[in-house]
Simulated scan of single mutants.
Amino acid sequence: MPNVFIPYSSSIIKAVFIERPNRFLIRCQLVEKGDVIEAHLPDSDRLKELLIQGRELYLLPNSNPARKTKFSAVCVKDFTSGNWVSINATLPNKVAGLAFEQHQLSEFSSWTHLRGEYSKGNSRWDHLLEKDGEYMVVEVKGVTLVNREGTGFFPDAVTSRGTKHVRELSQIAKEPGWHAAILFVAQRSDIKELQPAAEIDPDFANALLIAKRAGVTLSACRCHVTPDGMRLLDQIPVNLNI
Rank of each mutant, 00 (worst) to 15 (best):
A15N: 08
I6Q: 04
T90M: 12
W178F: 14
N64Y: 12
A198Y: 05
I191E: 07
A207L: 03
I6S: 01
L129K: 13
Q104W: 08
H127T: 00
L60C: 04
G229D: 08
S110Q: 10
R161Q: 14
I37L: 13
E56D: 15
F184S: 11
E56F: 12
G215M: 07
C28D: 00
Q102V: 04
L129I: 12
C221Y: 01
V76Y: 02
S219Y: 05
L128C: 03
R55N: 15
T226R: 06
K68F: 02
Q195G: 05
H40N: 11
Q53A: 15
L57Y: 14
G34N: 07
H127V: 02
G54N: 07
G152V: 12
E193A: 09
N88Q: 14
Q195H: 15
L60E: 09
D126H: 02
T80F: 14
P237Q: 05
R23D: 07
E101I: 10
P155D: 11
E149V: 11
V31F: 00
L91H: 06
L25W: 01
D156V: 09
L57H: 10
S109A: 15
V225I: 11
I87P: 07
I13A: 01
L60V: 10
K131L: 13
E149K: 14
N93L: 05
E117Q: 11
M136W: 02
H165I: 14
I52L: 14
E19M: 08
R67Y: 12
G215Q: 09
T163M: 05
Y118C: 06
W111N: 01
E193S: 12
F71D: 01
Y58L: 03
F184V: 13
V158R: 14
F24Q: 04
K48C: 08
P42V: 00
A205F: 11
S170F: 03
I191H: 11
L209E: 04
F17R: 01
P42I: 00
L91C: 06
T217W: 06
L91S: 02
D156F: 09
K131V: 05
L218C: 02
L41C: 10
N239D: 09
A73S: 12
I236Q: 09
A66Q: 11
A214N: 10
V4H: 07
P196C: 04
L50S: 10
S81P: 10
C28R: 00
I191D: 06
H224I: 09
V166D: 05
A214P: 05
P196H: 01
A220T: 08
N62M: 10
R161N: 13
D190P: 03
I52P: 06
F108H: 06
Q29W: 04
A180H: 13
